[in-house]
Each structure stands twice: as structure tokens, then as C-alpha cells.
Design a protein around this nucleic acid. Sequence first.
DNA 1: GCATCGGTTCGGCCGATACCGAAGCGTTGC
DNA 2: GCAACGCTTCGGTATCGGCCGAACCGATGC
Lengths: 254, 254
Amino acid sequence: MSTSPGEASLAEIAAVIGDPGRARMLVALLGGEALPAGELAWQAGVRPSTASGHLAQLVGCGLLTVLRQGRHRYYRLATPDVARLLEAMLAVAALQTAPRHRPESPRDAALRHARTCYDHLAGRLGVAIADGLVAAGHLALGDGAAMLQPSGRRLLQDLGIDLGRSAACRACLDWSERRHHLGGAVGTAMTRQFFALGWLERVPESRAVRLTPAGGAGLGRAVGLDPAPFLVAPALTCGGQSAVATTSSSSRTS
Amino acid sequence: MSTSPGEASLAEIAAVIGDPGRARMLVALLGGEALPAGELAWQAGVRPSTASGHLAQLVGCGLLTVLRQGRHRYYRLATPDVARLLEAMLAVAALQTAPRHRPESPRDAALRHARTCYDHLAGRLGVAIADGLVAAGHLALGDGAAMLQPSGRRLLQDLGIDLGRSAACRACLDWSERRHHLGGAVGTAMTRQFFALGWLERVPESRAVRLTPAGGAGLGRAVGLDPAPFLVAPALTCGGQSAVATTSSSSRTS
DNA sequence: GCATCGGTTCGGCCGATACCGAAGCGTTGC
DNA sequence: GCAACGCTTCGGTATCGGCCGAACCGATGC
């Protein structure tokens, strides 16, 4: 066969992602944290033995890396490129599912509201922050790319975020909003600082994040965000127990 | 199951891409042209009946669209998002294959040299043009994003390319060079104009493109490109017959 | 009209692989 | 040391999906 290496590996990688269980593992890891094998098995809805095989494949084709720590093995996305690939797939997938069923599970609602996209913010909150920066003239955004303006650089410096000389950042297509939010080095640095300032906090067992009152005030000042819709968050549906209860929590050890 | 629609479709789409035959079809369509079913069957190396099934799946999950014309059916990538997804996969796949085998088939050599990436230029030529623009200060490039500077806008206007007010463009990761080339609206407009000016021409039966002598002179003036390495192109290996001969040309009707 | 051609549908075959339970291995904690 | 724990390896089963040839359908051209 005259299969170019590119073609061969393309199918290989896609086939590995193309199993429902493995896909669920990857989406779980899209939060950016490293997770142990048992947690991923539970997320995928399979037995540990099955999950182990899946994880071996994911590591084998370079999508994940392992971190051995005591008797645990923590898995994480191998590179940011993998996260971008997954987001690109979710964006295409969202196009197909949007017209069809819209049951809007509570878990999805929380994710649509605000979540991490590997190393930056996504969901309505991520889009709203990007919008605020654009409206204030701090950010130029268009056609899949974005660039921070001098005023935006100063703004971020005031928030304690010191960027190198790079003003360019990625405009990541948000699969839930079908709009762009801020990614790349600038988006990563902003998100990290927001967590450090206590403006954001992670929702347990999920990629979802929550805006704290301090964060609402801070973002209101900084980017003119109206924090109201984000503070009344759908917390009742994603507080950890109800979402988990709808799945097979019985198979969980705890 | 609590599979969010995103997760379910992620696996669905990946599984569809994950077949070697279908992957070859998609890569063939990455050239940006619409191709008839028979041509795609030949590219995939399967019988028309098998290819028909594959194409139905690709259309079914929204990756391709059909264009009926007489007794032919032309297939093309459904949206630019699909092309971006495929390029993201190729970029990740290139990471894995790079350390391994490097047989460097003649077809790959031509593609590495210069090719279309759906609607813009890629390969060494695409990267060299982007480099030239950056070196001359016409383009700011960094972290997956790029932005045209005022001088770059004037340069493109002189070449007959009129952009709207958007100066932002995508920096597309080149899977063969592991560097960025110019995509987005600006990259698309440039590439289209280069073809219109006769600076570029397509290599038949391939995504590869060739720089014409006029194009070498023009790009030398415009972006300071040294056209020498691109004019002595590996044309002998990709002229159409030798590359095709290595595959099953016997099954071809012509 | 009839032959040709591009493409799809159908039926049957077969290889690949996801799944589980049981057993094994290394680590942790008492 | 011994038990508990997290994870992996192995063997067997069952299902899924790709592949082809043959038949069918619609459009084209003489």
C-alpha cells in the first residue's frame, strides 16, 4: 500500500479515540488534571481490567502519558495538542448533535455554564470574558485568532499576570456556545491567576468550574462582566451528588 | 448511561474517521476539491460498493456533503471545521510517527514540499512564505495565532488581495514541518490569488502544488522568498505517473 | 429503445476487538 | 510478615463492522 505515514496514523489515532469508553476517558481528562486508572474506569463505565487495556492503547499511540505514584497510576493528556484535537472534534460533533436531541442533562448544563478547556476557560463564562475584553478594546478577535492589545496587556498586568512578549493567543471554538473563547498562553495565564485569586473554584468530579462572589466582583471591575447569571449557577444540579447519583454510583467504592 | 451528547458524538465521529479507508478518503478531500465516489474508492483502495458504504457513513455524521451532478456524485468536506479537525489530527499523528519509520515515499516528499491545506498553503512553501512575512515585519505570529500588520495589509493590497477589516488569521500547525503556516481568511485569500496570478498550479491527482517561475519571481519580490529550492521541485517523483504507478493503477479505468 | 456507466443496496463471510472474571504483581499500612 | 488495595495480564465469549460479488437504479449517449 502507498499509505503515507500521515494517513496511517490518522486512522490509528481516530480509531483509538473512536471507542465510547476511551472517548469518555479523554473527555474526563480534558479538565487538565491527571486522574488515576480507577477513576477513569468509573468515568468510562467499564471494569478496571477493561479500562487498563484502553489506557494502554491511549498511551501507546501517544495521546496520554502515565505518572506512577505509589500504587496509583495517574494518566493525563500527553500534550496540549491532544487537548486541541479533542476540542476540535467536540466542535464538529456539536454541530451534528445540536439539531437533534436536546435533553440537556444536568451535567451538560453545568459544563455549558463554565468549565475548563484543558488549560483555559470555556463555556458561557469563557465566552463572556472574551466578549468583555473585545468590547473594551483590550482584545482583537477574529477568524480563529486573537491578539491582545496594549491596553489589555496593562489590564492583565494589573491583575498580576505577566506575559512575556507574546500578545497572540488562540481563539478556541467553544463547542457549547459555538462562539470563540480565549485560549493559548494568554488564556492559560488568565485562568491560572483567576484560580489563584480565588475567583474561580473547581466543581468536584467534573470539569465544571464555579465563579465565586469575589470572582464576580473582580471580573465585573476588570472586564465589565455582569456576574449575576454566573453566581446563581446551576449549582443545585451539579453539586456532586445529584449528577453522580444518576450514574451507576453503586459501582463506586466509596 | 449518562453520556453527554458531546461524549457520544465524539466517539461516533472518531470511529468514522478511524477506518483506514475512510481516513484516506478524508485526506484526499483535504485538498479542498470535491471528488466523485469512484475516485475516492480508488484513493481508499476498496471496491465501489465498499466505498459507497463508507461515504454514506461520512455523510451521515456530517463530515462530508454530497453534490449530485448528472450520474456523478461529488463529495467534499462539509465545513472548514472538518478540515481543521483533520489537520489537528495529522499534527498529533505526525508527533508519533516522526520518531519511528521514515521511508519518505515520493508522494510524501511532494506533499511535504508544497500542498494545499483545504483552502490555504502548507508544506515547506507555506511555512517559508509565513516566515518571510514575519521577517519583513508584515505579520505577527505566535502561540497558534497570527495577525497581519498594517504594512502586510498594504502588501497584500498591492497583490490584488482586498481583505475586509479582519487582520486576524489562524496559524495552522504544519504536520510535516512542525512549524506554523498561514491559514484563516488571510491565508485563504492569498492562496486563491496566487493561483489566479498563475504563481501556483496544482499537481494532478494530488493535494500537492507547484511553484511556477512567475510565482518564484513574484514571491521573491513580495516576501523576499528565495524561490530556488521550490522551482527545482521533486517534480520527477510526483508528476502523476510514477506516483500512481506505485499504487494499483491497474484497477484504474483510464 | 438499448447498451453503458457511475453509484447504491443486499447477503454472506470473516477478522478484529470490547468485555468480563479470575489470577498475578507491586505497593501500602498495620 | 500479612492483609488490603490499585492495577495489569490472561483466556474465553460475543458482537460489531469491513469486505466483496451480484443485483439493482438512474442518467447518459448512440
